[in-house]
Design a protein around this nucleic acid. Structure first.
Lengths: 192, 192
DNA sequence: ACCTGAACACCGTTCAAGT
DNA sequence: ACCTGAACACCGTTCAAGT
């Protein structure tokens, strides 16, 4: 179930699709998720109609590019033992950094979070899965209690990524905010 | 220092300015901070040039509208005794709600946070001041330690407001996230 | 001094015409 | 089956012409 099973694409279509994806990657890096689709088409050397044929929506294009992105997120999760508090914090920092790979990415992911039919669905699932792995290990290590809401944690990290991006925060400021959140997650609330 | 001291405006200009502000308020409520300026001008019954004459940038317009908004934020802060943990949490919830008054407001404020010459400067100052008042009271009441970073707290609340808005979260989900943050702020971190 | 609205640039999206 | 590019709608922004 890697690529679509039937209907092999025409040779020129295969080539155009690849050119579009490479052009899109560059434009996304330069101008973020709200970059001009016209520019992508121009950079790829195709007409705007061709771009729309391959990727009917902006999100379809982004979703395709996130396939390799997901690999990086999973690798980051694998690198986190979760044995110590700081290991978990490091993971949260890396996750936030990943969410800032392209300007606007965190916001786009937040906006599509609960859309079951979004092209970003698999990316969301991968992030939730990765975070769950790390926190499950942290829970076994006694760093955090046994009840944690992975979706909520990911939302908090996404929120921090969004402000860090908008307000152009330093790495230290980003880390400090995530430390507060992790602290809030690992301490039992004595209230109510 | 209420209004500009010199050069009284022509009668038609005064009237147009008021019409633009009222139209902008409606459009902002309907379509958020990224609403069409053309629509504002149309709704106000003026040409696009007139809008630009009164408000050279979108932010100038927003900054003007936030003058009354600031009053509400200050009232919310005044209503918070800070004597109990839940009082402080209630304040954070109200602040986040204020940041969601218009769609996109939290994001715009985050983006202009460190811009000294932004038309939103006074709005930022008011928010920082309001939050500082509440947390100072909370500190005196022993709810929180004596060292807290007001700017960082406001950033965290803004971040939560941004995801809540993008992901269309419920009031309960919003409150839960803010509770985690407040918990992280009120507990001493035992780590490094 | 202020207003109008035409004009321009840019962009997303569609679709008839091609191969 | 796929591509092209003209065409349309929409929007931000400017400015010459008006009063």
């Amino acid at each position: 179930m890697d690529t679509a099973p039937l209907k092999p694409m025409r040779a020129d279509a295969v080539k155009n699709r690849a050119k579009i994806l490479e052009a899109a990657r560059i434009e996304l890096e330069l101008h973020g998720t709200e970059c001009s689709l016209d520019m992508i088409a121009k950079r790829a050397g195709v007409g705007p109609g061709t771009l729309y044929r391959h990727f009917p929506t902006r999100e379809d294009l982004l979703g395709e590019l996130l396939h390799t992105w997901v690999t990086g997120v999973q690798a980051d999760a694998d690198a986190a033992t979760g044995e110590h508090w700081d290991d978990v914090l490091d993971w949260l920092v890396r996750l936030a950094d990943q969410a800032m790979t392209y300007r606007g990415l965190a916001g786009t992911m937040a906006a599509t979070e609960s859309d079951e039919s979004s092209p970003l669905r698999s990316a969301h699932a991968a992030v939730l899965d990765a975070n769950d792995q790390v926190f499950t290990r942290a829970s076994l290590a006694g760093v955090i209690g046994s009840s944690f809401d992975t979706a909520e944690i990911c939302r908090l990290v996404t929120g921090v990524a969004m402000i860090a991006e908008q307000a152009d925060l330093s790495a230290a400021q980003l880390r400090s905010m995530l430390a507060i959140i992790l602290n809030g997650l690992t301490q039992e609330s004595p209230h109510r």
